[in-house]
Design a protein around this nucleic acid. Structure first.
Ligand SMILES: [Mn+2]
Ligand SMILES: [Mn+2]
Ligand SMILES: [Mn+2]
Ligand SMILES: [Mn+2]
Lengths: 220, 220
DNA sequence: TTTTGGGTTTAGGTTAGTCTAAAAATAAGT
DNA sequence: ACTTATTTTTAGACTAACCTAAACCCAAAA
C-alpha cells in the first residue's frame, strides 16, 4: 500500500486523535488537527477508506484499521528518528525540529531509515520523550503521568512533553525544565490546579495547571 | 522566489543541459531528460518564464537567467551534500544515493543545509566527484578530461564520473575503478576508440570508448 | 414527534502537474 | 519558393489536494 504525503499526514492525525487505539474520530476534529476544512477531510476519508487504512461510515466518524495503524506508526517512526538526527547530529534545538521532520518523514526509502536508525544507535525515544516505534510498528509505552496529577511531596523524573510546539518548548528551556530532570512537587493550589515544583533539588518553579498537564513524568 | 519540487527538478535539468552556461535548450531535450512529454514541458516553461528563472521565447528554446542559475545551483548543492551524507555517514554505496538525494534535495530548510554542511565538514565534492556549490552558488571547477581523450602512456587520477547511473557505477566497482584511482593509458584501439588502462599500477582494464568517455581524470 | 442546529457530505471550482491528440510554427529538401 | 518533416504549442482531460457554498443527516430539545 502506497500513500501520498498528504495521506500519510491525515493518517498520522487520525492515529493521534484515536490515542493509539482504534477509537472513533470525527471529521471536524481531523480538520482542526490538519488545519484544513471539513469538506477536504470528507474527500480524504473517502480515499483512505478505499485504501482500507480506515473504516469509514459516512456521518459516523472513522476508525483506523490494523493496516492503517501499522502505516501511521511507520511514518511516526520516521518522524521521530529524523528528530533525533537533527538534535543529536546537527545540533538543532528541540523546538526547531518538528517542521523539518514533518517533511523528512515522507522520504520513501526503507534502506535510508534502516541505516539512519543504526547511525543513531537505535534510539528508543525522540527529543520530546516520545517512544520510537520499531520497524514492525511496535511501541513500548512507558507509564507516565502529567505532573499536574502528582501529589504534594511526590518525586519523579520528567520523561516527555505532551505539547511539542516551539512556544511550549522554549518556555521549558526558559524555566530550566528538561527531559531527564528530577522533580518534586512542593505545592499545589487547590483553586486553579497550579503547582510549584522543585527541579534537580535546587530550582523551584511555579506553573499553571495548563503547563503542568503538558509535562509528563515517571514517579519514583 | 519559491519553487515547487517539480519546478526545481525542471530548472536543474535545464541548468545541466545548458552545461552550466546560459546556452539555449530545447523542449524535446528537456522532455527526454525529465522523462515527460514535450507538451508537459511547454506548460512548465511558461510557468518558469513567468517566475523569470528562464527566458522563454516560444519555439526558440530557453535560456536560464542568472537568478535561475542561482536557484538551480542551490538545489544541486543540496543534492550533492545529501549524497555525501548518505555515503559517508549512512554507508550507502555510491550507486544507491541518487534516487534518495533526488527527494531529499527538495526539503526546504536553510538551517538544515547549513548544519548538514558543517556536520560533513564542508565537503568540496560529492561521491561521484562532482563539485558542491557553496551557499552563494559558486562552484570551483576542476579541469578534468574523459580518459577516452588521454594519450597512450599518459598518467592521471580518476576524479569523477560523467554517468552516475547505478548500472555504470556498478560496472566501475566490478572492474575496480574508483574516484581517486591512479590510471595510465596502456593502449588505444584506433578502430573503435576503446582503451586499455592500468589502475593503481597493478590492474589492467580493457574498456569501450563509451565507458572511457564517462570516466573523468586529471592528468599528471 | 416535530423542529432545529451542529456536524458532515456533496456540488462545483481552482491550481499543479501530467497526459494524448491535434494544430501551428519553424526548419529542411527539392 | 513550395512542399514536407520535425519540433513545439495548444486544446482538452485527468488526478490529487485543496476551497466555498449549499444541501443533507441526525440527535437533542421542545
Ligand atoms: Mn508530514
Ligand atoms: Mn517529537
Ligand atoms: Mn529532485
Ligand atoms: Mn552525484
Amino acid at each position: 500500500m502506497n500513500l501520498t504525503a498528504a495521506e500519510e499526514n491525515y493518517l498520522k492525525a487520525i492515529y493521534h486523535l484515536s490515542d493509539g487505539a482504534s477509537k472513533s474520530v470525527s471529521t471536524n476534529d481531523i480538520a482542526a488537527e490538519m488545519k484544513t476544512k471539513p469538506a477536504s477531510v470528507s474527500d480524504m476519508l473517502r480515499k483512505l477508506g478505499e485504501k482500507e487504512v480506515i473504516n469509514y461510515r459516512k456521518y459516523y466518524g472513522v476508525n483506523i484499521t490494523p493496516e492503517g495503524k501499522k502505516l501511521a506508526l511507520q511514518t511516526i517512526r520516521k518522524h521521530r528518528l529524523w528528530e533525533v538526527f537533527l538534535v543529536e547530529k546537527l545540533n538543532f534545538a528541540w523546538d526547531e525540529v518538528h517542521e523539518v521532520a514533518e517533511e523528512l518523514e515522507h522520504i520513501q526509502s526503507p534502506l535510508l531509515i534502516q541505516r539512519l536508525d543504526a547511525f543513531l544507535n537505535y534510539p528508543k525515544f525522540d527529543p520530546h520523550g516520545d517512544p520510537i516505534p520499531d520497524e514492525f510498528g511496535d511501541v513500548k509505552a512507558r507509564p507516565r503521568i502529567p505532573i499536574s496529577e502528582m501529589e504534594i511531596d511526590q518525586s519523579g523524573q520528567i520523561v516527555a512533553v505532551k505539547d511539542s510546539s516551539a512556544a511550549f518548548l522554549r518556555y521549558m528551556d526558559k524555566v530550566g525544565a528538561y527531559i531527564g530532570a528530577r522533580v518534586k512537587i512542593l505545592d499545589k493550589v487547590e483553586f486553579d490546579g497550579s503547582v510549584e515544583i522543585l527541579v534537580d533539588q535546587k530550582k523551584s518553579i511555579f506553573m499553571s495547571k495548563d503547563v503542568a498537564s503538558n509535562i509528563l513524568a515517571v514517579q519514583s
